[in-house]
Design a protein around this nucleic acid. Structure first.
Lengths: 115, 115
DNA sequence: TGTTGACCTGGAGCGCGCTCCAGGTCGCAG
DNA sequence: CTGCGACCTGGAGCGCGCTCCAGGTCAACA
């Protein structure tokens, strides 16, 4: 069973070791399995989940958002509740996409002006 | 000539008075014209520019980005240079759009799973 | 002219999301 | 067994983007 060291996990995910520990403290990932001596051992599942979290972070979700995200997906809520929550988050992201497109339009207008 | 008080400017733009002053200090807007007594008087042009800045802020550009943006547009650079700079910024925003779409895809997958 | 409230300035404070540090532990290589 | 580097913890520090505050000024109105 492949177990990755913190350094390897960091390499695979593009996230620093400190940030990985921070995410774990904040409940965004893990808890990560430990060796007898207390060193973290990341599994492929952990790596996958970290990728998911960073994807959502890159999209602008905050730490608190992600914590709620993780908490709900892991909870005993019904599938319907989970889906509803996800759809709500999805709508929030689409708002951000809309804001981005407004900014692109502004830029395009300026570009046209200077071209 | 319509001159707006700080409170009116804030109301029109949806930005607080403190933030307006902050943006001015940082060189993102203005300098705003003053009365003999030192009070700010915002013009319609100022309001328009503030809208542009907040649009770009909402899209995720940082204060330093905006400062550079303003500096270049106001500079004596050639039209070509300005257009090139704007296109570069545009590309960066599109990267953000792409990141957002990746997150939307992730969410859609989860939604499908729970539906 | 006096009161009142919006405004002024400089600077401190704050929440977020890391990032770094000190002082100690683990575990492999020699 | 020793050395050494990767890892551990708790906590401090930092850059960003505001936000708030104290102490003072301006201007409209009674």
């Amino acid at each position: 069973m492949s177990a990755l060291s913190p350094a390897q996990a960091a390499g695979r995910t593009g996230v620093t070791i400190d940030t990985l520990r921070y995410y774990e403290r904040e409940g965004l990932i893990g808890p990560i399995r430990r060796t007898a001596g207390g060193r973290r051992q990341y599994t492929e599942d952990d790596i996958f989940w970290i990728g998911l979290v960073t994807c959502l972070r890159n999209a602008g979700l905050g730490i608190a958002d992600l914590r709620e995200f993780v908490a709900i997906l892991r909870s005993e809520h019904t599938r319907q509740d989970k889906a509803a929550f996800l759809r709500e988050r999805r709508a929030a992201l689409q708002q951000r996409v809309a804001a981005l497109h407004r900014a692109l339009d502004v830029l395009d207008e300026k570009i046209a002006y200077y071209s």
